[in-house]
Design a protein around this nucleic acid. Sequence first.
DNA 1: CTTGCTAGG
DNA 2: CCTAACAAG
Lengths: 273, 273
Amino acid sequence: MIPKSSYPGDQKILRVVSINVNGLRSSVTKGLLEWMEKSDADVICMQESRITHAQWTDKFKPEGWYTHLFPAERPGYAGTAIYSRLPFVSITDGLGFELADSQGRFISAEFDLGLDKPAHICSLYLPSGSSGDEAQARKDHFLEEYKKILKQWRDEDKSIIVCGDYNIVHKRIDIKNWSGNQKASGCLPHERAWLDHIYYELGYVDTFREVRKEAELYSWWSNRGQARAKNVGWRIDYQACSPDWKDRTVNAWVYKDEWFSDHAPVIIDYKLN
Amino acid sequence: MIPKSSYPGDQKILRVVSINVNGLRSSVTKGLLEWMEKSDADVICMQESRITHAQWTDKFKPEGWYTHLFPAERPGYAGTAIYSRLPFVSITDGLGFELADSQGRFISAEFDLGLDKPAHICSLYLPSGSSGDEAQARKDHFLEEYKKILKQWRDEDKSIIVCGDYNIVHKRIDIKNWSGNQKASGCLPHERAWLDHIYYELGYVDTFREVRKEAELYSWWSNRGQARAKNVGWRIDYQACSPDWKDRTVNAWVYKDEWFSDHAPVIIDYKLN
DNA sequence: CTTGCTAGG
DNA sequence: CCTAACAAG
């Protein structure tokens, strides 16, 4: 972990974390809250919180954090959350279509970071398509609906960081077993083309890849077999940003020293001045 | 544990164990098979095996044991099993009524022990009534049907040991919290009267109590709270025998040094000569 | 293989 | 509070 204090004294840094927690209750038993304290993060976007408001008791809301949870209607399923050291100007739950809104798959938090525009930092949990054709169809529907919204935000020139589990690898470099997964959900050509579109046509920026060009940087490993020990991983957790964040990106890494989930935290430092 | 070798050399002993394993797979991870090896048991009757034939792989059938499983139709639910050092002459699954037979609640194994009659050693898992009125009604129905069969076996003068989880305490001495459980399933007056009937009217013998007169000997403890640590238990696991076994009963105890389940093994030694 | 739900105990 | 099934990932 790079402490924020290691930057020059006049350098103002915004540290943003994306993590699919695979059950907030489970990840907390594995030390997530303690890691958050030492992470120097300003904003932490979580996916798969899998907790209802009733279950989200005070022990999940530590001192010093502004918190917001958007659960799925179905208990124990999906859901997103945002924890922040900075106060929210406003919070918006959902994207305005059923699949996103009933399953708690998107939160947008607006912040005043002293920049020319308000900054929107979002937590996105894109559906998995891996459990069959119907699941893939739902994922594809989500992609279609969400693409329209992403287009609109670009038209508005909105300043935005969308942290999330996209459940899609972008390129060959983003997955260990490329050839073996050509027919696997998350690595399908039309899914990767969707990422091409939002990055190359709409102009969003994969800020992690902007500063980290190496291979073998993944954010998710299957629980089956020895995937984790052998680093047989997929990079499917991104921070997709509007272009104004591109040149602000100063550092990015995956935290793998501890294990809170089957996904690892993806941490990105953005300079604010 | 009393080794069988501690009896005089000419004393032939039949050691019979009854244990509700609360999931054979779970109890095996807790060392049940290793305990069986050192138990000196001849016959072990299990209840709540909660395993299908497909799941009952070779690792559950150790060398040197004759084994038989009678699972419920519903996976992971109820079921009985018998493990024996002695070969079975024959095995009969069920009691001839739906509730017993579809839920794997009774196995009878016939043995040739060199006595004047064949010996039947059985594993019985009586339904619990604790989850509500319908469950209690099913339990009561089982008691009614099973009572007829017990009567018939006495009329036939059948030699039988019915090991099992009866889910009923007999008397005040058989439960720590007598007054607090007068309305609890398992301690209801009509259930205890059923045991009175089979012992005092039909002449079956509670062989454990025949040789162990002390209080505070229990076979089941709730998982909730500190029931086990405080010995807040119930004696609901019995070996109910035809009268010919009464004077053969030489020793009986509950094994509590290790924990394989929420029930403890009830071990009874019978002399054969 | 893992989380969390549900039913049953 | 524990076991196991189940759905989902």
